[in-house]
């Protein structure tokens, strides 16, 4: 047993897990508000990270300016996507809606590869130091920042949905669209807002991940990794998304530890979440916190 390695991996897992949690939260937000399963969530991260990278390297903008511009761009992008593509799909069968987002996902993936290439590009350095020492464990400052930002986002979401007028309107829409509409809430607007927020926050996660590991097309894999997290937490639970993300992040790294120490299968790191996913679906398809749909005749 290598305790230090195990501890390091668990910390890594928790940090990565918070990022998964944030992306899962964005995914859940869209699903809750507009009943769309967004297979293009990973591309939001990808686009956000590339746009930010492009602004920083091409125009030499300072980080905060480039970052803010990226967020504005992603907001517009999310709204345009919802209005142009997802709005015509309202009322279509689940399969069609899923397929539209899958189509979008491979479209954006290809376009991003076409525009920016397939190679990993490092972000311009933002922090002067390479790593911080916390209780004898090496933690990169960007990871620390990501953890802090993720926690801030989670707190922000909690506040937003509990106290702000817009957040309450969105919750009402998620609860029952017809009732929300009769109370004077514009359901269409709520859909667009949920896409905008989701795109913005995902882009933020993409930028944070890009700062640590560089920007590459592999970022879009986040969108697929997010499924084990949301299914584990329950598809329509924001708290569940966070918890699911943390568990999957830790699980991944534990799988790597077990693999490296005893099994030596290789690649267990990447595949373990999917085994977990199938297991969860077989045992408890509605996850830890999801609402169970009971069908009666």
């Amino acid at each position: 047993m290598n305790v230090e390695l195990l501890l390091q991996l668990v910390v890594n897992g928790l940090i990565l897990g918070t990022l998964y949690g944030v992306v899962a939260m964005c995914f859940t937000l869209i699903y809750k508000a507009s009943q769309v399963v967004n297979f293009a969530q990973g591309e939001f991260l990808l686009i956000g990270a590339w746009v930010c990278w492009w602004l920083l390297t091409e125009f030499q903008l300072p980080f905060y300016a480039g970052f803010l511009l990226t967020l504005v761009f992603m907001m517009v992008f999310g709204i345009v996507l919802q209005v142009l593509v997802l709005r015509p799909m309202i009322g279509e069968p689940v399969i069609s809606v899923i397929m539209v987002t899958i189509g979008l996902s491979i479209f954006f993936q290809a376009i991003m590869k076409w525009l920016f290439g397939v190679f990993t590009q490092p972000f311009p350095p933002i922090f002067p130091i390479r790593s911080v020492d916390i209780f004898g464990l090496n933690v990169q400052p960007a990871y620390l920042m990501s953890m802090v930002i993720s926690l801030l986002i989670m707190a922000g979401f909690a506040w937003f949905f509990k106290y702000s007028r817009l957040g309450l309107a969105m919750r009402a829409t998620a609860f029952n669209q017809q009732v929300a509409q009769s109370l004077g809430i514009s359901v269409k607007q709520m859909f667009a807002v949920s896409w905008a927020i989701s795109a913005m926050v995902s882009a933020l996660a993409g930028v944070v991940f890009g700062i640590v590991n560089g920007v590459s097309p592999a970022l879009s894999f986040f969108g697929i990794k997010v499924f084990p997290a949301v299914i584990l937490g329950g598809l329509d639970s924001i708290v569940g998304a966070v918890v699911g993300g943390l568990i999957i992040g830790v699980l991944e790294n534990l799988a790597e530890y077990v693999d490296g120490q005893w099994l030596n299968l290789g690649n267990l790191y990447a595949i373990a979440p999917f085994y977990a996913l199938v297991l969860i679906l077989m045992i408890k398809p509605y996850g830890l916190f999801g609402t169970e749909k009971i069908e009666r005749l």
């Binding site: 279509e92 539209v100 189509g103 979008l104 491979i106 290809a110």
Partner: peptide
């Protein structure tokens, strides 16, 4: 050059776009 060299990516993008457009206009 960007079109000639990036044709593989454009092909993939076209597949995605075709799926989206068909679902919207000719489901």
């Amino acid at each position: 050059p960007s079109i000639v060299n990036g044709l593989a990516f454009l092909k993939q993008a076209a597949i995605g776009l075709a799926i989206v457009l068909f679902l919207i206009f000719e489901p």
